[in-house]
Amino acid sequence: MVATVPTRGLTVVDARAHTARTPGRPGRRRVGWTLRVVAAVLVAVVMVFPLWVMLVTAFSSGSAYSQTLRLWPSEPTLGNFTRVFAAWPVGSWFANSVAVAGVTTVLSVAVSLTGGFAFAKLRWVGRTPVFLLLLATMMIPTQAILVPQFRLVSSLGLVGTFWAVILPGAAATFGIFLARQFLMAIPTELVEAARVDGASTPRVFWSIVLPLCRPLVAVLTLLALMYQWNDFLWPLIVLRDPALFTLPIGLQFLQGQYLTDYGALMAMTLLATAPLVVLFLVFQRYFVQGLATTGLR
Protein backbone atom coordinates (compact mmCIF):
# COMPACT_ATOMS: atom_id res chain seq x y z
CA MET A 1 0.00 0.00 0.00
CA VAL A 2 3.02 2.24 0.37
CA ALA A 3 3.44 3.16 -3.19
CA THR A 4 -0.20 3.60 -4.03
CA VAL A 5 -0.92 6.51 -1.76
CA PRO A 6 -1.32 9.58 -3.93
CA THR A 7 1.93 11.45 -3.56
CA ARG A 8 0.56 14.57 -5.10
CA GLY A 9 -1.26 15.13 -1.83
CA LEU A 10 1.38 17.53 -0.73
CA THR A 11 0.95 19.77 -3.69
CA VAL A 12 -1.86 22.22 -3.29
CA VAL A 13 -5.00 20.83 -4.80
CA ASP A 14 -5.86 23.05 -7.68
CA ALA A 15 -9.57 23.03 -8.28
CA ARG A 16 -9.90 23.14 -12.01
CA ALA A 17 -13.19 21.94 -13.33
CA HIS A 18 -12.68 19.83 -16.40
CA THR A 19 -16.32 19.58 -17.21
CA ALA A 20 -16.37 23.30 -17.72
CA ARG A 21 -14.55 22.90 -20.94
CA THR A 22 -16.75 20.23 -22.38
CA PRO A 23 -19.12 21.51 -25.00
CA GLY A 24 -22.72 20.31 -25.10
CA ARG A 25 -26.18 21.51 -25.93
CA PRO A 26 -26.96 24.67 -23.91
CA GLY A 27 -30.44 23.52 -22.75
CA ARG A 28 -29.19 20.23 -21.35
CA ARG A 29 -26.29 21.98 -19.74
CA ARG A 30 -28.57 24.35 -17.91
CA VAL A 31 -30.76 21.50 -16.64
CA GLY A 32 -27.67 19.63 -15.52
CA TRP A 33 -26.34 22.71 -13.76
CA THR A 34 -29.63 23.24 -11.93
CA LEU A 35 -29.77 19.61 -10.85
CA ARG A 36 -26.22 19.80 -9.56
CA VAL A 37 -26.90 22.95 -7.58
CA VAL A 38 -30.00 21.39 -6.05
CA ALA A 39 -28.03 18.26 -5.16
CA ALA A 40 -25.21 20.29 -3.64
CA VAL A 41 -27.62 22.33 -1.56
CA LEU A 42 -29.37 19.19 -0.32
CA VAL A 43 -26.03 17.62 0.61
CA ALA A 44 -24.97 20.78 2.41
CA VAL A 45 -28.21 20.88 4.38
CA VAL A 46 -27.82 17.26 5.48
CA MET A 47 -24.18 17.75 6.44
CA VAL A 48 -24.80 20.94 8.39
CA PHE A 49 -28.01 19.86 10.08
CA PRO A 50 -26.40 17.93 13.00
CA LEU A 51 -24.05 20.82 13.69
CA TRP A 52 -26.88 23.30 13.50
CA VAL A 53 -29.04 21.46 16.03
CA MET A 54 -25.98 21.23 18.28
CA LEU A 55 -25.62 25.00 18.13
CA VAL A 56 -29.32 25.63 18.67
CA THR A 57 -29.47 23.25 21.63
CA ALA A 58 -26.32 24.70 23.20
CA PHE A 59 -27.80 28.19 23.21
CA SER A 60 -31.38 27.27 24.08
CA SER A 61 -32.74 27.58 27.57
CA GLY A 62 -35.70 25.87 29.04
CA SER A 63 -36.66 22.24 29.05
CA ALA A 64 -34.12 19.88 27.61
CA TYR A 65 -36.95 17.57 26.71
CA SER A 66 -38.40 19.46 23.84
CA GLN A 67 -40.90 17.38 21.94
CA THR A 68 -41.26 19.95 19.22
CA LEU A 69 -38.79 20.67 16.50
CA ARG A 70 -36.61 23.62 17.41
CA LEU A 71 -34.51 25.06 14.63
CA TRP A 72 -33.79 28.37 16.25
CA PRO A 73 -32.85 29.06 19.89
CA SER A 74 -36.10 30.05 21.57
CA GLU A 75 -34.54 32.32 24.18
CA PRO A 76 -30.84 32.57 23.34
CA THR A 77 -28.79 32.16 26.48
CA LEU A 78 -25.34 31.28 27.76
CA GLY A 79 -26.93 29.56 30.74
CA ASN A 80 -25.87 26.11 29.64
CA PHE A 81 -22.24 27.16 29.53
CA THR A 82 -22.21 28.96 32.87
CA ARG A 83 -24.07 26.11 34.55
CA VAL A 84 -21.52 23.48 33.51
CA PHE A 85 -18.55 25.75 34.13
CA ALA A 86 -19.76 26.44 37.64
CA ALA A 87 -20.09 22.74 38.46
CA TRP A 88 -17.07 21.10 36.80
CA PRO A 89 -13.45 22.01 36.06
CA VAL A 90 -14.12 22.51 32.36
CA GLY A 91 -11.45 25.18 32.16
CA SER A 92 -8.82 22.73 33.41
CA TRP A 93 -9.97 20.13 30.89
CA PHE A 94 -9.52 22.65 28.17
CA ALA A 95 -6.05 23.56 29.43
CA ASN A 96 -5.18 19.87 29.77
CA SER A 97 -6.24 19.22 26.20
CA VAL A 98 -4.12 22.12 25.02
CA ALA A 99 -1.11 20.92 27.01
CA VAL A 100 -1.41 17.25 26.06
CA ALA A 101 -2.21 17.82 22.41
CA GLY A 102 0.41 20.56 22.19
CA VAL A 103 3.30 18.61 23.66
CA THR A 104 2.36 15.42 21.83
CA THR A 105 2.17 17.31 18.57
CA VAL A 106 5.57 18.98 19.04
CA LEU A 107 7.13 15.62 19.93
CA SER A 108 5.48 13.67 17.16
CA VAL A 109 6.33 16.28 14.53
CA ALA A 110 9.94 16.30 15.71
CA VAL A 111 10.38 12.53 15.63
CA SER A 112 8.53 12.31 12.32
CA LEU A 113 10.86 14.86 10.72
CA THR A 114 14.08 13.29 11.96
CA GLY A 115 12.78 9.78 11.33
CA GLY A 116 11.51 10.68 7.89
CA PHE A 117 14.93 12.11 7.08
CA ALA A 118 16.68 8.96 8.25
CA PHE A 119 14.40 6.76 6.16
CA ALA A 120 14.46 8.95 3.08
CA LYS A 121 17.98 10.32 2.89
CA LEU A 122 20.33 8.30 5.05
CA ARG A 123 21.73 4.89 4.30
CA TRP A 124 21.95 2.47 7.15
CA VAL A 125 21.72 -1.21 7.75
CA GLY A 126 18.17 -2.43 8.23
CA ARG A 127 16.53 0.67 6.89
CA THR A 128 13.93 -1.07 4.74
CA PRO A 129 12.89 -3.79 7.20
CA VAL A 130 12.60 -1.27 10.04
CA PHE A 131 10.50 0.98 7.84
CA LEU A 132 8.22 -1.88 6.90
CA LEU A 133 7.81 -2.77 10.55
CA LEU A 134 6.88 0.84 11.38
CA LEU A 135 4.44 0.79 8.51
CA ALA A 136 2.84 -2.37 9.86
CA THR A 137 2.30 -0.68 13.24
CA MET A 138 -0.12 1.64 11.47
CA MET A 139 -2.38 -1.36 11.27
CA ILE A 140 -2.33 -2.14 14.99
CA PRO A 141 -5.79 -1.34 16.32
CA THR A 142 -5.80 0.58 19.60
CA GLN A 143 -7.98 -1.99 21.31
CA ALA A 144 -5.59 -4.79 20.36
CA ILE A 145 -2.88 -3.38 22.59
CA LEU A 146 -4.96 -1.75 25.34
CA VAL A 147 -4.10 -4.30 27.99
CA PRO A 148 -0.33 -4.65 27.41
CA GLN A 149 0.07 -0.93 26.81
CA PHE A 150 -1.72 -0.19 30.05
CA ARG A 151 0.51 -2.61 31.95
CA LEU A 152 3.58 -1.20 30.28
CA VAL A 153 2.70 2.39 31.02
CA SER A 154 1.74 1.50 34.56
CA SER A 155 5.03 -0.35 35.15
CA LEU A 156 6.82 2.78 33.96
CA GLY A 157 4.91 4.63 36.66
CA LEU A 158 3.22 6.91 34.16
CA VAL A 159 -0.46 6.12 34.80
CA GLY A 160 -2.24 9.22 36.02
CA THR A 161 0.20 11.60 34.33
CA PHE A 162 0.03 13.24 30.93
CA TRP A 163 3.13 11.31 29.85
CA ALA A 164 0.99 8.18 29.71
CA VAL A 165 -0.90 9.85 26.86
CA ILE A 166 1.93 11.84 25.32
CA LEU A 167 4.61 9.20 24.83
CA PRO A 168 2.43 6.58 23.09
CA GLY A 169 0.78 9.44 21.20
CA ALA A 170 4.13 10.66 19.89
CA ALA A 171 4.67 7.18 18.44
CA ALA A 172 1.97 7.79 15.82
CA THR A 173 3.72 6.32 12.82
CA PHE A 174 1.64 7.88 10.09
CA GLY A 175 3.83 10.96 10.43
CA ILE A 176 6.95 8.99 9.58
CA PHE A 177 5.35 7.72 6.46
CA LEU A 178 4.24 11.17 5.40
CA ALA A 179 7.63 12.74 6.18
CA ARG A 180 9.56 10.07 4.31
CA GLN A 181 7.33 10.50 1.30
CA PHE A 182 7.88 14.25 1.31
CA LEU A 183 11.63 14.14 1.93
CA MET A 184 12.23 11.63 -0.82
CA ALA A 185 11.10 14.31 -3.25
CA ILE A 186 13.92 16.61 -2.13
CA PRO A 187 16.77 16.26 -4.64
CA THR A 188 19.57 14.16 -3.24
CA GLU A 189 22.06 16.41 -5.03
CA LEU A 190 21.23 19.23 -2.62
CA VAL A 191 22.23 17.07 0.28
CA GLU A 192 25.28 15.70 -1.53
CA ALA A 193 26.51 19.19 -2.37
CA ALA A 194 26.42 20.23 1.26
CA ARG A 195 28.27 17.06 2.13
CA VAL A 196 31.00 17.85 -0.29
CA ASP A 197 31.36 21.20 1.47
CA GLY A 198 32.03 19.26 4.63
CA ALA A 199 28.73 19.68 6.45
CA SER A 200 27.84 17.01 9.00
CA THR A 201 24.56 15.12 8.68
CA PRO A 202 22.85 17.04 11.52
CA ARG A 203 24.03 20.26 9.92
CA VAL A 204 22.61 19.19 6.55
CA PHE A 205 19.32 18.32 8.19
CA TRP A 206 19.10 21.59 10.09
CA SER A 207 20.30 24.01 7.42
CA ILE A 208 19.37 22.39 4.13
CA VAL A 209 16.51 19.98 4.63
CA LEU A 210 14.45 21.54 7.40
CA PRO A 211 14.01 24.90 5.66
CA LEU A 212 12.36 23.09 2.77
CA CYS A 213 9.89 21.33 5.06
CA ARG A 214 7.49 24.15 5.86
CA PRO A 215 4.43 22.58 4.17
CA LEU A 216 5.30 19.21 5.65
CA VAL A 217 5.52 20.66 9.14
CA ALA A 218 2.16 22.35 8.65
CA VAL A 219 0.50 19.13 7.56
CA LEU A 220 2.10 17.03 10.29
CA THR A 221 1.19 19.57 12.95
CA LEU A 222 -2.42 19.85 11.91
CA LEU A 223 -2.95 16.12 11.59
CA ALA A 224 -1.26 15.38 14.90
CA LEU A 225 -3.27 18.13 16.61
CA MET A 226 -6.51 16.81 15.21
CA TYR A 227 -5.71 13.27 16.25
CA GLN A 228 -4.51 14.16 19.75
CA TRP A 229 -7.23 16.70 20.48
CA ASN A 230 -9.87 14.10 19.72
CA ASP A 231 -8.19 11.02 21.20
CA PHE A 232 -10.49 9.30 23.65
CA LEU A 233 -10.03 5.59 24.40
CA TRP A 234 -6.44 5.66 25.59
CA PRO A 235 -6.70 8.80 27.76
CA LEU A 236 -9.91 7.31 29.20
CA ILE A 237 -7.89 4.37 30.47
CA VAL A 238 -4.82 6.14 31.81
CA LEU A 239 -6.07 9.51 33.08
CA ARG A 240 -8.01 8.74 36.22
CA ASP A 241 -8.14 12.01 38.08
CA PRO A 242 -10.95 14.30 36.90
CA ALA A 243 -8.59 17.24 37.32
CA LEU A 244 -6.41 15.75 34.58
CA PHE A 245 -9.16 14.91 32.11
CA THR A 246 -8.85 16.05 28.54
CA LEU A 247 -11.94 17.40 26.77
CA PRO A 248 -13.15 14.14 25.15
CA ILE A 249 -13.09 12.29 28.49
CA GLY A 250 -14.59 15.32 30.14
CA LEU A 251 -17.40 15.20 27.60
CA GLN A 252 -18.07 11.55 28.31
CA PHE A 253 -17.96 12.35 32.03
CA LEU A 254 -20.62 15.02 31.52
CA GLN A 255 -22.73 12.56 29.58
CA GLY A 256 -22.73 10.41 32.71
CA GLN A 257 -23.61 13.41 34.91
CA TYR A 258 -26.13 15.21 32.75
CA LEU A 259 -27.76 12.20 31.05
CA THR A 260 -30.17 13.73 28.60
CA ASP A 261 -29.72 17.36 29.61
CA TYR A 262 -28.78 18.16 26.04
CA GLY A 263 -28.47 21.89 26.63
CA ALA A 264 -25.48 21.30 28.91
CA LEU A 265 -24.07 18.49 26.80
CA MET A 266 -24.24 20.37 23.52
CA ALA A 267 -22.73 23.47 25.08
CA MET A 268 -19.70 21.42 26.05
CA THR A 269 -19.64 19.55 22.75
CA LEU A 270 -19.54 22.89 21.01
CA LEU A 271 -16.71 24.03 23.25
CA ALA A 272 -14.68 20.90 22.57
CA THR A 273 -15.31 21.07 18.84
CA ALA A 274 -14.95 24.78 18.15
CA PRO A 275 -11.13 25.09 18.37
CA LEU A 276 -10.55 22.44 15.73
CA VAL A 277 -13.31 23.76 13.51
CA VAL A 278 -11.78 27.24 13.60
CA LEU A 279 -8.32 25.81 13.00
CA PHE A 280 -9.74 23.81 10.15
CA LEU A 281 -11.39 26.78 8.53
CA VAL A 282 -8.22 28.84 8.75
CA PHE A 283 -5.79 26.15 7.60
CA GLN A 284 -8.22 24.20 5.45
CA ARG A 285 -5.71 23.95 2.61
CA TYR A 286 -3.18 22.07 4.75
CA PHE A 287 -5.81 19.87 6.34
CA VAL A 288 -7.05 18.80 2.95
CA GLN A 289 -3.55 18.15 1.71
CA GLY A 290 -2.71 16.14 4.77
CA LEU A 291 -5.89 14.16 4.61
CA ALA A 292 -5.40 13.52 0.93
CA THR A 293 -2.07 12.02 1.79
CA THR A 294 -2.84 9.90 4.78
CA GLY A 295 -5.74 8.29 6.55
CA LEU A 296 -7.30 9.40 9.74
CA ARG A 297 -8.00 6.94 12.41
Partner: peptide, 25 residues
Protein backbone atom coordinates in the same frame (compact mmCIF):
# COMPACT_ATOMS: atom_id res chain seq x y z
CA UNK B 1 28.22 0.65 6.56
CA UNK B 2 26.03 3.70 6.46
CA UNK B 3 25.59 7.10 8.00
CA UNK B 4 26.86 7.30 11.53
CA UNK B 5 24.21 9.77 12.60
CA UNK B 6 21.39 7.53 11.38
CA UNK B 7 20.70 6.27 14.92
CA UNK B 8 20.37 9.87 16.05
CA UNK B 9 17.67 10.53 13.47
CA UNK B 10 15.85 7.23 13.29
CA UNK B 11 16.34 6.45 16.97
CA UNK B 12 13.54 8.47 18.59
CA UNK B 13 10.74 7.21 16.39
CA UNK B 14 12.02 3.64 16.36
CA UNK B 15 12.32 3.72 20.13
CA UNK B 16 8.86 5.18 20.68
CA UNK B 17 7.15 2.90 18.17
CA UNK B 18 9.08 -0.10 19.45
CA UNK B 19 8.24 0.60 23.06
CA UNK B 20 4.62 1.67 22.69
CA UNK B 21 3.43 -0.23 19.61
CA UNK B 22 5.59 -3.22 18.69
CA UNK B 23 6.35 -4.38 22.21
CA UNK B 24 2.71 -4.14 23.37
CA UNK B 25 1.60 -6.04 20.29
Amino acid sequence: RGDRSAPLFAGPVVLLAGLFLVLPM
